[in-house]
Simulated scan of single mutants.
Amino acid sequence: MENVVHLDPAPAVFEAMLEGWRRQQSARFLKASTITPRLRLVRRMERFTGLYPWQWAPADGEAFIDDMRGGQLPIVSSTARSYEVTISLFVEFLLDSRYGWVRVCEERFGDTPQQVFHEGNSVLHKLDYEGDPRRRPLTYDEVQALFDAADARPGVIAAQGRKGALCAARDAAVLKTVYAFGLRRREASQLDMVDLRRNRAAPQFGEFGNVMVRYGKAPKGSPPKRRTVLLVPEMDWLLDTLRDWVGEIRPRFEPGSHPALWVTERVGRLSPRSINEAFVAAREDAGLDPSLDLHCLRHSYITHLTEFGYPARFVQEQAGHAYGSTTAIYMGVSNEYRNKLLERALKGRLGEDWE
């Protein structure tokens, strides 16, 4: 690094810094989907300030975040914090004496990197959950309306003489499966036929007693988490849907030896984005709140399992959460459910004549 002479060394050093940081993160087995946006953000900071990292000061970081809070799509506090953390991680890499960047910058440019975000100019993390408050579980009626709209789409498309009726039938089956097993969209996308399994404790469900989720959400630097999600009796209406999909609809796509449970008309794996688009189409047809998104079906699943009376630990295992506090964030039980709990508690304390 020191033996190479550049006519304009600053851009070359900056690129070398980014490449070094990329390798460091790759060595930790972070995914490209994590590394690439981080590198892009650092480049964005460099373009915004017109300065290189060894020239950045706290005022530059503050101006960068302030600029992104304006405009047509202002960032929210959780996004600002993630940006601040990413830039701070990059600067920590530069300041680490094991990599020698402080010495390089001082010798070549007479300046050294410094942290631009600190306790006095960073977004504080005070709450466990900072998501969009409009994101919530669907009510039972809303779930039914969503599925009714999804079921109606194939007939509407066929009546109009358009292509896509078969794909619409698939989309309806996907959405029902996402809800009935509480899946994330990537988990649903990555399901293979072999992931549909029997549950010896519930032989009445046949080959659909549980699903093996092999691509669960992973902690950074770790492989995908695996879990088995059991089909609960309250969701046994899904059996007819899965039987129709596996036995009747999927073969019409002529998937051959393709392993995916959900296939496209071009015999590929249905993408998470396509599953999300299927939800949006059904949501609009059903006239539901446009703030609801696909992940709300997972919120609904966790909430409804709780209202069905399943123990908190069971619900946590079904959802694949490491901590019960995470599962609790997803819950939005109804007033009716809470009133039943209150009634049960009053009866237990005051007897049957409490009214």
Rank of each mutant, 00 (worst) to 15 (best):
W56D: 00
T36Q: 13
M193S: 02
C167G: 03
G324I: 15
H258M: 07
S88F: 02
R38N: 07
N3E: 15
R226N: 10
E15C: 02
F308T: 04
T303D: 10
G155P: 02
G221E: 07
A260F: 04
F117L: 09
V263H: 05
R153C: 00
P233S: 15
F279A: 09
L270N: 02
A322K: 13
S189G: 08
R38S: 11
A59P: 00
R283F: 06
W54H: 07
G348E: 14
W237C: 05
E15P: 01
F117K: 09
V194Q: 13
V123T: 11
E130L: 11
G120L: 15
G161W: 12
Y330F: 12
S26E: 07
K340R: 15
G332Q: 14
P233L: 08
L138N: 05
L7M: 12
T303N: 09
T79F: 08
Q25F: 02
L242A: 05
R136H: 10
R22I: 04
S26P: 00
D111I: 01
R198G: 06
G20D: 03
K220A: 12
G332Y: 05
G206R: 06
P290N: 08
R103P: 00
A202D: 10
D148I: 02
F90Y: 10
A158Y: 03
V143T: 07
Q144E: 13
T228V: 14
W21L: 08
S189F: 08
G71Y: 11
G348Y: 02
W245K: 11
E106V: 07
G221C: 11
Y310C: 10
L191I: 04
R28Y: 01
I329H: 03
R81G: 01
R69M: 15
N276D: 12
M331A: 13
L346W: 04
E207V: 03
D66N: 11
V178P: 05
G268R: 15
R250A: 05
R136D: 10
F253H: 08
H299W: 04
D8C: 03
R338A: 14
G161A: 12
E277V: 01
A173P: 00
P259R: 02
H295N: 02
R162P: 00
A188E: 08
A150M: 09
R349E: 13
I157G: 01
H6I: 00
L89G: 07
Y215A: 14
R184I: 04
E84M: 15
G182I: 03
V76S: 12
T326I: 15
R136Y: 10
L196H: 01
R200A: 14
H125K: 13
F208M: 05
W54T: 00
T139N: 07
G20H: 06
L297T: 01
S77F: 02
V333C: 14
Y301D: 01
A345H: 11
A63H: 09
I35M: 07
R38F: 04
S325W: 01
E84K: 10
I75N: 04
L341K: 05
Q144S: 13
P311V: 06
E254G: 02
D128I: 08
E234V: 15
P233A: 14
E207N: 12
D236Q: 15
V315H: 01
T241L: 03
A286N: 10
A282H: 06
M1S: 14
F93I: 02
E106K: 14
A80I: 07
D151P: 00
